[in-house]
Amino acid sequence: MPVLRLPETTLNYLQMDERPDPTAPPLDLVLVHGLAANLAFWYHLAPALAAQYRVTMVDLRGHGRSGMPATGYTPAVLAQDVLALLDHLGLERVHLLGHSFGGSVCLHLALAHPERLASLLLADVRLRLLQPQQRVQDWPHWERLGPNLKELGIHIDEAGHEAGYQLLEEVMRFQLRGSDASVFPKLLAQWLPIGGGKRTAQHWIKLLDTTSARQDFIALEDFTQTDLAQLTLPLLAVYGEQSMAVKTARQLQELWTQARFEFIPQAGHFFPLSQPEKFVMSIQNFLNTPCPSARTAV
């Protein structure tokens, strides 16, 4: 796979272009995965999107086959990495799609360099600015899932403000001990990228233990609600109806009155994996329709 060498890190990326006429000027769609994932997260969606767009997928630093430098894991720095990739590939203006933490990265890029975006697509993004706490006891079905995890020896501080991160780390450490991820309750796959195997778990724990990622991931975003409200790009925000990030969506709806919001029924945080057809349809409908949300700048 191609690699971009930057002063601080390397970025692994992959492009897919299956348009009927590849010589026609491309519309570019760039996909940014969330935490503990990598560009493979998009691989099952990419062919459908690549029939119409030149699709670029990137491994964020510390993820997949990109480099793992000691520092630089805040969404603002990761957004600079994505910008460097756009520059490297000569992508002047792109549709930018991010899932979860990857969406926060995209949002930072959109606010710092709106001229580089044709539109912004956010999938199940939780913003700390709007939703400071993420307690497991607020999650749907935790009353069923919690006892199941306790039986497996996974104990979570239910009052912790960042329980999602703790749960992810504990689940990865569980896999690292050689335990089989198939014992996890199926519900857990709605929330966490489980089942990646021992090497994925090793990679994640190494990232947390040997870099500034643990602190950087939970840093407050570099923007305010006023900044968000002034975003004038065409915007699509898709959320799983049962996701713990829905609180963020409800507040964004008040800030972005002209954006398109969609809620996928019976879906959790990982609907791009669990309900890919619906998600692709949302993306295509949005990108194929001239968007009304390009508001006049305030």
Partner: peptide, 29 residues
């Protein structure tokens, strides 16, 4: 012990080796 990204790396390498796109998502999905 391949992870998902290793699978993608493998199929990209296979396509480079044989100099042909093969539509691996048919096999992976």
């Amino acid at each position: 012990e391949f992870s998902s990204i290793d699978v993608i790396q493998l199929i990209v390498s296979i396509e480079e080796y044989f100099k042909q796109k093969m539509g691996f998502h048919e096999l992976l999905m």
